[in-house]
Every structure is written in C-alpha cells, then in structure tokens.
Amino acid sequence: MFDASSNALTVSRSGFTAKSLGGGRRFALQGRKDTLEGVAKAFGLAEAPAMLQSASAGDCTLLRLAPQELFIIAGEAGLPEAVTTYLGTVPNSLVEVSERQVGWTLEGERLRDTLAALSPLDLRTKSFPVGTATRTLFGKADGMLWRTDENSFHLEVWRSFAPYMVAMMDAAALDASW
C-alpha cells in the first residue's frame, strides 16, 4: 500500500516502473494559429506539431495539446531567446508552469495493461503511435501523457495528485501481472 506520507513517489513492479522525472521547466503557450506557427519557426522547426503530435527542438519538446496550445517541456535554461523575442511581438499567453506538474518516465512490458487500468485511452500502437501526446483522465486525476517510445511513456499530473497517481499505478501494475 502506498504511503502518502513518504516521499517515495516512484513505482517499481515487475513489468512496470515509474521513475520520477528530474528537473526541467514547463511552459504553457497559447495563441492563435499563426502565432504557434511563428513560434515553431523561432524554434527552428518547419511547422508547429499537428494536434496531439510532438516535436523536438534543441532541449525543448513541443506538445500540441490543444489547437491553441503548445505545451513546452524545456531544460533548466528555459526557452531560446529567439522564441521569447518573437513572442514579444505577437499576442499570446506564455505562462510558466514548471511547478504545477510532476511526472514520471513509465517503462516495462506491462506498461499498457497498467495504464489501461486507469485510463480509457486506446494505447495500442496503431491508435497511439510513438510521439503522440494528449491530456486525459487517469482515474480521478487529469494527466498529460506522451509516448516517447514503443514501451516508454512520459506522464505528468498536477503536483498534489502525485501520491494518488503513484498509488493507482502501483496497484494497477500489481494487478496487471495476474
């Protein structure tokens, strides 16, 4: 049983691990379509990632979570200067949310079964290929899920939901082995 009072916010079960993500910053960037395209160019990308797609630029990853929103996973240095410069010239909303979320790297051969205990998403590779990112519901917690590899996901939830999420993943991973 997960103990909410401990700080061990990881899961390690046979066939499923959730390792805490280290560091990095997060930005929620919203704007009209042209602005998002402009930002992508400032990142050095040909175009903004399509809906539910992701793209990497330097040490930043852009997740298109909504038509008007790019969620940016950045390194400690934050956003490239070209990006902030560009954003100074167009209407947009850039809000740092580095503290809002915590997350895990999820791995293991029972990964899909474990997540399927919590989420109604169809995570078969044909429906949710590598590179796909979305917000969804895990039990009663909103989460942001990004498939980084066939058997590896990046999951973030709002900070106060982390103990719940870990407890749920731990229980689901145990069940998934039966």
Binding site: G31, N92, S93, V95, V97, E99, R100, Q101, W158
Partner: peptide, 10 residues
Amino acid sequence: DVWLTSTSEE
C-alpha cells in the same frame, strides 16, 4: 485575444 492558464498548483 486572451488566454487562460491554471496556475493553482504553480
């Protein structure tokens, strides 16, 4: 031209 972001846990 305005956008909303939850910062409750930020």
